[in-house]
Write a protein that binds this DNA or RNA. Structure first.
Length: 286
DNA sequence: GGCAAAACCGCATTACCCCG
DNA sequence: CGGGGTAATGCGGTTTTGCC
């Protein structure tokens, strides 16, 4: 944080303080833990004084308190810096000056966004979890999470329904909890212990099922023994057929409500046990 | 990778002072 | 006056920061 004094006051303050200290510039600077050149630059009003340092001075010499009224504003550090990049491009300044056209060309032909690419590879290599989270947050911003329920935004009505059902039945769950499977990161819609719940009603069932199958395999290898796919009545049969497997169950949100709300519900274990039964016993809807 | 602006800092030069 | 030592100053390079 920097403070802006009215013209001349910063110089006055520094000189005044120096008198009070009774030290040389160098000594005073080291007392304030800044470089002597910096202190001089401040005296010459070349740069803005750190608010932190101003406080330090006032603390040492309360008679400097009066200068506070001369502060006409506070600014964040590096407050006025004009960024390069796009604005520079607009103004054809700096790197974007026409005289650098040749260099621009070579820069672009050498990969152009090499820096950004490096950043991505480095982040992936060094902080994969953080990287994925950042990417995910970016994605979340671009996607629309328009269904709000209990301080959590959901992506679609199906997810919302599931969240409601769980909440009504006092079942704790985690929404889009990031898990790592085989070096990759996934964000299953819902996780309850080692059970994963995915919501989908994407009309291209074949394609979605392929994706899901791949995910489910990864989940299974990382100890998530069961995956529940929640869809709508219309697609239930198709998804069910395409995702046959010992650890996968396809249900609708109504099914879920029935299990949890009805007689079959007797705790988490019961949920898990009743699922396969439900899925196979029932005649698929047409 | 790039740029621009702010902040910071090293160092050579200059100013100052003391003293024989 | 001039040598020698230290503090102050001027110059300009470097680092930091934020954005493309």
């Amino acid at each position: 944080m920097r403070c802006i004094f009215t013209k001349g006051k910063q110089k006055e303050l520094i000189l005044f303080a120096r008198d009070l200290y009774g030290l040389s510039w160098r000594e005073m600077a080291s007392k304030l833990r800044i470089g002597s050149s910096t202190l001089r630059d401040w005296r010459d009003e070349k740069y803005l004084v750190h608010y932190r340092i101003f406080c330090k001075i006032v603390k040492a010499f309360p008679q400097c308190e009066g200068f506070r009224t001369s502060i006409i504003g506070l600014k964040e550090d590096n407050w006025g810096r004009q960024p390069g990049g796009f604005r520079t491009k607009q103004n054809s300044r700096g790197f974007f000056d026409p005289k650098y056209a040749q260099q621009q060309h070579s820069w672009k032909s050498n990969g152009g966004r090499v820096g950004l690419r490096n950043w991505h590879t480095q982040m992936k290599a060094n902080k994969p979890g953080k990287y994925h989270q950042m990417q995910q947050e970016k994605l979340k911003k671009s996607l629309q999470y328009k269904y709000k329920y209990h301080n959590q935004k959901y992506r679609n009505i199906l997810e919302l329904n599931v969240a409601e059902i769980f909440t009504e039945n006092d079942i704790r769950f985690e929404y889009e909890h990031m898990i790592k499977c085989e070096g990759k990161f996934y964000l299953p819609d819902f996780t309850l212990d080692n059970v994963i719940l995915e919501c989908t009603y994407w009309h291209d069932v074949e394609q979605r099922a392929r994706e899901l199958r791949q995910k489910i395999e990864a989940y299974a290898k990382s100890g998530f023994s069961k995956t529940i796919v929640v869809t709508i009545q219309k697609y239930k049969h198709e998804y069910s057929r395409l995702l046959q497997g010992s650890n996968t169950v396809v249900i609708t949100s109504e099914d879920l409500r029935e299990i949890l709300g009805g007689r079959t519900w007797a705790g988490r274990e019961s949920l898990l046990n009743s699922l396969p039964k439900l899925s196979t016993d029932r005649a698929p809807a047409s």
